[in-house]
Computed example of a mutant assay.
Amino acid sequence: MSKSNLSGKKLLRTGLQIGISVAALTIVLSKTDTDKLLEVIGSANPWLLLGAFIVFNISKILNALRLNRFFRAIDLNISETYNLQLYYIGMFYNMFLPGGIGGDGYKIYVLQKNHEIRMVNVFNAVFWDRIAGIFALVFLTGILVLPSTFAALYEPYIPATWAAIILCYPLSWVLTKMLYKQFLSIFGITAIESILIQTAQVVSAWLILLALGLPSNHIDYLAIFLVSTVATVLPITVGGAGAREITFFYALNHLQLDANSGVALSLIFFAISAISALLGMLLQGKTTSKKPKKQ
């Protein structure tokens, strides 16, 4: 395939991502009381928002540590500092450069370039790190859904939710053994790290709820937050913008809860993600200029 065709496909994908984000945000904002939404955001407690920002970045540091554990499993030994820099640059690519190489692609490219290691091995480590996160996300979503209003509304689905919780990690272990035996020795520790990462993100969202002064139904908002996180995993929007907001809007309306608070939570969380990702821009260029020292 020619470079012009590849560039055309990247531009098309970028255009679609931007279009979907804009369309989703337009739908939400057109159906939301924007004056009240701005009032809710403007009255948020700044210290609790700072706490949410710190906890969010703790989750990202834990995520980088987990990823480096996968790297060591394929005999790719890099320092934790260098790996953290690379991780934040990847965040920047994912958030601000949609449709292009992407954060994961950037990490794979740089590591394969600077180390004598097969690209497929680096890809496997990055890919299975992502999968570990998805399993933790499903596990915690199920746990939060059970005490939420969703469980009362959809009682026949409670057994299926329990089944998903119970079978989640046995299935993950079986898939690891079948497909990626090189990661089997770190399965337990990475599973624990994955749960801690997602828990930290839930705590960050909860601190935003407290900052907004939301008095009740926190479990419902946090359950929707995790469901919306699943939606942002799909690479169809710019940094998840629009996907989380539209999930919150329709889910909260379905539960007859205040959609303004949910959309405010979503927008603030996106802002925290974007500000954190900008740190990667400051590190851009440092990881490609020379081969990093091994650990």
Results as ranks from 00 to 15, higher is better:
Glu39Lys: 12
Asn260Leu: 12
Ala271Glu: 11
Ala160Pro: 01
Val233Met: 06
Leu111Thr: 00
Phe127Pro: 05
Lys286Thr: 15
Ser216His: 12
Ala277Gln: 13
Ile108Met: 14
Ala259Ile: 01
Leu167Phe: 15
Ile58Gln: 02
Leu111Met: 05
Gly99Asp: 01
Lys113Met: 00
Leu171Gln: 09
Val122Phe: 04
Gln284Asp: 09
Asp129Glu: 11
Asn83Cys: 14
Val145Glu: 01
Gly188Pro: 13
Phe123Ala: 10
Ala160Trp: 09
Ile166His: 09
Asp33Ala: 04
Ile143His: 00
Leu175Ile: 07
Met119His: 00
Leu255Lys: 01
Cys168Ser: 09
Thr149Arg: 00
Lys113Ala: 00
Ile108Arg: 05
Thr81Met: 08
Ala136Met: 12
Leu184Met: 10
Lys286Tyr: 06
Pro156Met: 12
Leu179Pro: 01
Asp35Lys: 06
Thr247Trp: 01
Val22His: 00
Gly103Ala: 06
Lys177Asn: 13
Ile166Asn: 08
Ile54Ser: 10
Val122Lys: 05
Asp75Ser: 11
Asn114Leu: 12
Ile54Met: 14
Tyr180Asn: 13
Tyr169Ser: 13
Ser21Ala: 14
Gln112Asp: 06
Ala223Thr: 04
Pro235Phe: 15
Gly240Leu: 05
Ile272Gln: 10
Ile236Met: 10
Lys290Pro: 09
Lys10Thr: 03
Thr81Val: 12
Ile195Leu: 03
Leu209Asp: 08
Leu282Glu: 04
Leu171Ile: 15
Val138Lys: 00
Asn83Pro: 02
Ile78Cys: 04
Asn121Lys: 11
Ile195Cys: 04
Ser43Asn: 13
Trp47Lys: 14
Lys107Trp: 02
Thr149Ala: 00
Ala251Cys: 11
Val203Ile: 12
Glu80Gly: 02
Gly142Asn: 05
Ala163Phe: 08
Ile41Glu: 07
Gly242Leu: 11
Leu16Gly: 10
Ala191Tyr: 07
Leu175Val: 14
Leu267Val: 14
Ser21Cys: 11
Gly280Ser: 02
Ile134Val: 14
Ser185Leu: 14
Leu179Ile: 08
Arg13Cys: 03
Ile158Ser: 03
Ile101Arg: 03
Ile117Gly: 07
Leu62Thr: 06
Ile89Gln: 15
Ile272Glu: 10
Tyr87Pro: 12
Ser30Leu: 06
Ala277Cys: 14
